[in-house]
Write a protein that binds this DNA or RNA. Structure first.
Lengths: 175, 175
DNA sequence: TTATTCATGTAATGGGTTACATGATTAG
DNA sequence: CTAATCATGTAACCCATTACATGAATAA
């Protein structure tokens, strides 16, 4: 159950409404942890019921600003420091890359690989642009920079892998 | 629903029983896509019901050998070539790394980071050992090599990120 | 004969996605 | 006044995990 800790982590940075959190997940963390409105609202209610966050006064359109409290911070710290991480993954991106290299004819594989490479290049370029942008911005927060840098390094790793995969596929006998 | 395609992908390499597939997931793909016995048995039944795989004769202890057929290969190809990938991720590994850098005191953060670095080093070393081992083995299959290489590159990316995160955390004012 | 590995499954629960459902506020 | 954005939720369904449950074959 990491959504709970992802939410606590974002709220530790600054108070936010469910709607703002959903945007934050979508903009900054889509390649790390994706979560949507519909999932966030119930989770925020649960966090409030469990006493880990507090709800400030309602804003326009029923906006509820959630703030982390000491109990929430302690829960987050406990999870990060005391609980060992779940090392297993379920990544469609990586699965796809593996399968296209393993289970397609060379022509199909190269075509599918090209498409994935396009995505990773786009990710990388977006992260490079953000990096540049943040370097000029004295307001930029470090956590966001580190998230960007992680996504950048992961895209670069996949691009390097793709070069290797391409070579291996091209070396195979054609159908 | 990628489990289905993961299974078809493995069966495209060679026929296998549910038990063997579970092992394969655990040994080769834990950092790409993790699946267990309990999940595989029902999925294999469904694949058989949908006509994508066929069940050979039963072996000892009720062992059922599943074989992919043309319909299964077509379904796999369709998914890999025609369907655009789901680009969103839900990775506890990456979420943790991000949160520890974002939401802990410097001392806690460095401690938690050390633990994660330990895991990534272990992954990298294991993958390096496998790479060496496969280089000597003329039997080694290319798909397995590419899976190992992907995991290796991803671990190395996270180790490089960790160096950067450590620097950023150390540069922060201590509590 | 005992432990390990092989081999398969079901039931209950929990988490996530999709579809459904509503409406206020602000910018142009 | 119209479109976009802000803002929140519920219900049904599907997928995944955990706990439960069983037992045959092989190696020591």
């Amino acid at each position: 159950m990491s959504l709970r800790h992802a939410v606590l982590g974002l709220l530790a940075g600054r108070p936010a409404s469910g709607y703002e959190l959903a945007k934050h997940f979508q903009r900054t963390l889509p390649h790390i942890w994706y979560a949507r409105n519909h999932q966030l609202y119930p989770e925020l209610s649960r966090l409030a019921a469990d006493g880990h966050v507090e709800v400030g006064k309602e804003g326009p359109r029923g906006r509820r600003l959630y703030e982390i409290n000491d109990s929430g911070r302690e829960e987050l710290r406990r999870w990060l420091v005391d609980v060992d991480s779940d090392r297993t993954a379920r990544s469609e991106t990586y699965l796809r890359a593996f399968l296209l290299s393993a289970a397609l004819s060379p022509d199909d594989a190269l075509q599918a690989l090209d498409r994935e490479v396009g995505h990773w290049r786009a990710d990388r370029d977006e992260m490079l642009a953000l990096t540049k942008h943040m370097a000029d911005d004295p307001e930029a927060d470090e956590a966001h920079q580190l998230a960007v840098s992680m996504t950048l390094k992961l895209s670069e790793a996949m691009l390097a892998w793709a070069d290797e995969a391409r070579e291996a596929i091209e070396a195979r006998p054609r159908d």
